[in-house]
Measured scan of single mutants.
Amino acid sequence: DDVELRDGDWRVELKDADEEILRAVEEAIKNGASEQELRELAERLIR
C-alpha cells in the first residue's frame, strides 16, 4: 500500500509521488476531504 494515512494526522505520505499528485492531495486535504475520499483520490492518481 503506497498511501499511508494516520488516524487524526492528515499528513499523507505518497512514495514516489510526483508534484501533481502531491498538489492534488494537499488541495483535497485543504478542502476537508474525508480519509475515505483521500484514499480514493490517491488510488486514482497512483494508477
Rank of each mutant, 00 (worst) to 15 (best):
V25E: 00
N31S: 12
L14T: 02
E40H: 04
E26L: 14
S34Y: 01
L14N: 02
E43F: 09
K30W: 05
L41C: 08
R6A: 12
E40C: 06
K15S: 07
L38Q: 03
R11V: 06
E20A: 13
N31E: 06
G8P: 13
L14M: 06
I21E: 01
W10Y: 04
E43T: 08
R23N: 08
A17N: 03
E13Q: 08
D9T: 06
K30H: 06
I21H: 02
A42W: 14
E4I: 12
E37A: 02
L38D: 00
S34M: 03
R44Y: 10
V3F: 11
R6T: 13
I21P: 00
V25G: 00
R44N: 07
R6P: 06
D18V: 11
A42Q: 05
R44C: 11
G32C: 01
R23G: 02
E4W: 12
D7S: 04
Q36C: 05
R44I: 06
Q36T: 08
L5E: 13
E19P: 14
E35P: 06
D7Y: 07
L22S: 03
L45T: 01
E35C: 04
V25A: 01
E26N: 03
E43I: 09
S34H: 02
R23S: 07
D1K: 10
A24P: 00
L22G: 02
R11K: 08
A42N: 01
A28T: 00
R6W: 15
E27C: 09
A42E: 03
E4F: 05
E13N: 15
I46C: 06
D2S: 13
A42K: 06
W10S: 03
G32P: 00
D9P: 06
V3K: 11
E37K: 03
V3D: 12
R47A: 11
S34V: 01
V25Y: 06
I46K: 07
L14S: 01
R6E: 11
G32E: 01
S34I: 02
D2M: 12
K30V: 07
D18F: 08
L41F: 04
E4D: 11
R23K: 15
E4Q: 11
W10T: 02
R6V: 10
E13D: 09
L5V: 11
D1I: 10
L38M: 04
G8M: 14
A33Y: 14
E35I: 06
K30G: 04
A33P: 00
N31R: 10
D7Q: 07
E19D: 12
D16K: 09
A42C: 15
L41V: 01
E37I: 03
R44W: 10
A28V: 01
R44K: 12
A28D: 00
A24L: 12
L45K: 00
R6G: 14
R39P: 00
E20N: 11
D16T: 06
V3Q: 11
E35Y: 07
N31F: 06
I29C: 14
L14F: 09
E27P: 00
E43R: 12
E19Q: 10
E27Y: 03
D1N: 11
V25K: 00
V25H: 01
V12R: 08
E35D: 09
V12F: 05
W10C: 12
R47M: 15
A28S: 02
E19I: 14
D7A: 07
R6S: 14
A24Y: 08
G8S: 13
E37S: 04
E40L: 09
E4S: 12
E27Q: 09
K30Q: 09
V12S: 11
V25T: 01
E35T: 06
E43G: 05
R6Q: 15
E43M: 11
A42G: 01
L45P: 01
R47Q: 15
E19F: 08
L45Y: 04
E26F: 10
W10R: 02
L5Y: 10
D7L: 13
G8K: 15
D1C: 14
D9W: 15
A24H: 04
E26I: 09
K15I: 11
V25Q: 00
L5W: 14
L38S: 03
K30D: 04
R44D: 09
E26C: 06
L22E: 02
L41K: 00
L38H: 00
A24W: 09
D18W: 09
L45C: 05
D9I: 10
S34F: 01
G8H: 11
L5M: 13
V12E: 15
V3E: 12
Q36A: 13
E4G: 12
L41Q: 00
W10F: 05
L45N: 01
V12M: 10
E43P: 00
E35A: 09
D16C: 05
E26V: 10
E27G: 03
E26A: 10
I29F: 12
I21V: 10
E26Y: 13
R6K: 10
E19A: 07
R23D: 03
D18L: 09
R39V: 05
G8A: 11
V3H: 11
L5H: 14
E35N: 06
Q36M: 14
G8N: 13
R11S: 08
A24R: 05
D18S: 00
L5S: 08
V25S: 00
E40W: 03
E43H: 11
W10H: 02
I46Q: 07
A42P: 00
R23E: 04
E20M: 10
K30R: 12
Q36P: 00
K30S: 09
D9K: 08
L22A: 05
R47W: 14
E27V: 07
K30I: 07
W10D: 02
E43L: 13
E35S: 07
A28W: 04
L14K: 01
G32H: 02
D2G: 08
V3M: 12
L38I: 13
L14R: 01
E20C: 15
D9S: 09
V3L: 07
R23P: 00
A17D: 04
E35G: 06
K30M: 13
E13P: 08
E13A: 11
D1F: 15
D9H: 09
A28R: 01
S34T: 08
K30P: 00
G8D: 09
E40R: 04
I21W: 05
E37L: 03
Q36W: 12
A42D: 00
R23W: 10
R47F: 15
R11I: 07
V12H: 11
D7M: 05
L38Y: 05
G8I: 15
A17T: 06
R39S: 04
E27F: 08
G32D: 01
A28I: 02
I46G: 03
V12W: 13
L22F: 07
I29T: 06
D1V: 10
G8W: 15
E20L: 10
A17L: 12
L41N: 00
L41A: 00
D16V: 07
E43Y: 08
L5A: 04
W10I: 05
K30T: 04
